[in-house]
Simulated scan of single mutants.
Amino acid sequence: MKKIVLIGMLIGAVALNGMAQTRAGQGQNDPKAKSILDNVSKKFQSFKSAVVNFVLKVQGGNNSVNDSQKGTVYMKGAKYKVSLNGQDIISDNKTSWTYAKDVNEVTINNVDQNAGAITPAKLFTNFYDKDFLYRLDGETTEKGKTYQNIELTPTDKSKNFFKVILSVDKKSQSVARIKMFEKNGNQYTYEVTSFTPNAAVTDATFTFDAKKYPGVEVVDLR
Rank of each mutant, 00 (worst) to 15 (best):
E217A: 13
G116R: 09
F54C: 03
V58T: 12
V103T: 15
V201M: 06
S49Y: 07
V216G: 01
V51D: 01
S49G: 04
S35F: 04
V55F: 00
K211H: 10
T189I: 08
Q187A: 12
F44T: 11
P214N: 08
V192M: 09
N110R: 14
T146G: 02
G27S: 09
V192C: 07
T119C: 09
G71K: 05
K163D: 07
F161L: 07
I108F: 13
Q173M: 15
Y128P: 08
T125N: 13
D112A: 10
S68L: 05
A115L: 09
V111T: 02
A15Y: 11
S91F: 07
N17L: 06
G60N: 11
S64F: 00
T95Y: 06
Y188C: 06
K145P: 00
S64P: 00
D129H: 08
A117R: 05
A115Q: 12
T189K: 02
D156P: 02
K183L: 06
I108W: 07
S174N: 13
A117G: 12
N104C: 10
N110C: 14
L6F: 06
G8N: 15
T189R: 05
I11G: 04
T98C: 03
T98Q: 09
S167I: 06
D131R: 14
N186D: 15
A176H: 04
K130H: 11
Y188W: 15
S49V: 06
K48Y: 07
K79Y: 02
D137N: 15
K79H: 11
K212H: 04
K79M: 11
F127W: 15
W97A: 03
L10Y: 09
V111M: 07
R222K: 14
A115V: 03
F47Q: 10
G25N: 09
A117E: 13
E142M: 03
E217Q: 12
G86K: 01
N149W: 02
V82P: 00
I36V: 15
K2N: 14
P120S: 08
K32M: 10
V103E: 06
F132D: 03
D38W: 01
G60W: 04
Q173A: 13
T189H: 00
F181Q: 05
G61L: 01
F132N: 06
G27L: 04
A100Y: 09
V14H: 10
K163V: 07
